[in-house]
């Protein structure tokens, strides 16, 4: 099993975060190298009244092209995609995004679980998921689902999180393969192929 995992290439990295996760991204994104061979999808809980400055803010921290997703955008390697405020973000078999304005999940829209589960269905064991700081249970169910399909899951080291509840919850529920601090996360991601 472990052997299998090592051989599997990463075709998508999904990152979920809530309260306190923006700071982590601000530190993590500048450390990511140019020309990553997989796309990154970022799901952040945020207030929906905030305009889409967040994508620009994240873009300013990385050499990787970064944008907020529009409906039916293709998922292209080497890009960072941010889930738009107030929509769930799903991935289709033909590797395009679909948006969904259905009921909130875990009091959240976008919900991390929704995207994690949808991505795991399409990418299976070629999926890597990372859960960051937050005060909510969102993400744990999705990580369990990803693990079941052979994907790899990472939690931010709770001691390093402003809000340790979210990564800790995933760890306690046995949904996590690796527990990493920011430094280790960047090394891990840069070494993914």
């Amino acid at each position: 099993m472990e052997e299998d995992r090592l051989e599997t290439s990463c075709q998508l990295l999904v990152i979920g975060g809530s309260a306190g996760s923006l700071d982590v991204l601000f530190k993590l994104l500048p450390r990511l190298k140019a020309g990553l061979t997989f796309p990154i999808v970022v799901i952040l809980h945020r207030r929906n009244s905030v305009e889409s400055f967040l994508a620009e803010l994240l873009a300013s921290k990385t050499v990787l092209p970064t944008r907020e997703v529009d409906d039916k955008d293709p998922v292209v390697p080497g890009n960072i995609y941010l889930a738009p405020a107030d929509y769930h973000l799903l991935i289709e078999k033909n590797r395009t995004f679909s948006l969904d304005y259905s009921e909130k999940v875990n009091f959240s829209r976008p919900s991390i679980d929704v995207t994690f589960e949808s991505a795991s269905e399409i990418y299976g064991k070629a999926l890597v998921a990372l859960i960051l700081s937050g005060a909510n249970e969102d993400g744990t169910q999705g990580m369990l689902c990803i693990q079941k399909r052979g994907g790899r899951t990472i939690a931010q080291k709770p001691e390093s999180a402003q809000m340790p509840f979210m990564p800790q919850n995933a760890i306690s529920r046995g949904a996590v393969n690796y527990i990493l601090d920011i430094e280790q996360m960047s090394t891990f991601i840069n070494e993914l192929t």
Partner: peptide, 9 residues
């Protein structure tokens, strides 16, 4: 219909 969303529903 978008299959991902429909299936989830």
């Amino acid at each position: 219909y978008s299959r991902a969303s429909l299936k989830r529903r």
